[in-house]
Amino acid sequence: MVENNRWGNIFAHLVLILGVAIVVFPVYVAIIASTHPPGTFVRGVMPLWPGTNAWENYTTVITEGRSRAGTPPIGGMMWNSFIMAMAITIGKLSISIISAFAIVYFRFPFRIFFFWIIFLTLMLPVEVRIVPTFQVVADLGMLNSFAGLSIPLIASATATFLFRQFFMTVPEELMEAARVDGAGPMKFFKDILLPLSITNIAALFVIMFIYGWNQYLWPLLITTDPDYYTIVMGIQRMVTGGDSEPLWHLVMATVVLAALPPVLVILFMQRLFVKGLTETEK
């Protein structure tokens, strides 16, 4: 900084501490609420200090769920979410990297045309074409299946662009050398391009995993069988289904568990996350 202003710095710290408090507050409240017995929420204003019922609440949601309101145990829903998120992530990464490879390293008729088809997916998010997409998936018999949960979401223009951008910066000499040594396109892809792209793949992996885990509208539409419920949409069932007032202690325990995996991913891979985020959107 240009000048060192003691009071200015203290003020900045105060603003930031307040900011962190605002950012953390909702989750703090959720964690606190998930440790109280049900009676607490009948008596009026919610408490701000931890209660004593944490163990019971968490074991209840993990093993039993709320069968009365039609929500299965959390364990199963978390597993479904995990499979869906992984399928979406791996699917997106693999089909994007090979299409980017085709677009950059080959010259063939209709190349630009294909590029534009892929580009179009950016303009058609699932939210704007809900009914017809649902009909297509229903006609293909993909309702209530992991294929239906993941495949319609794995086309990705952003990942394709990012890989294309990256491939353009790979030195030409690498490919010339590979060709001189007699390597075919797939061998070049596997032995040279893929190892070079590892950091990009990892950064995108973090972003896509969070995207997949947090899917809401799509699972809501195509799963009617509780065996395929994912946890993020399951929370909505817990809030609205059953009794008039939600069982807050159980809802909040579920919220904490649902938010945990993606939050952990961000905290432990913060550098990759920042890289992935700033590069995919540019």
Binding site: V27, W213, N214, A258, A259, P262, V263, F273
Partner: peptide
């Protein structure tokens, strides 16, 4: 980290 929280949550 709030980036990781789903809008519904």
């Amino acid at each position: 980290w709030p980036y990781a929280i789903a809008p519904a949550i």
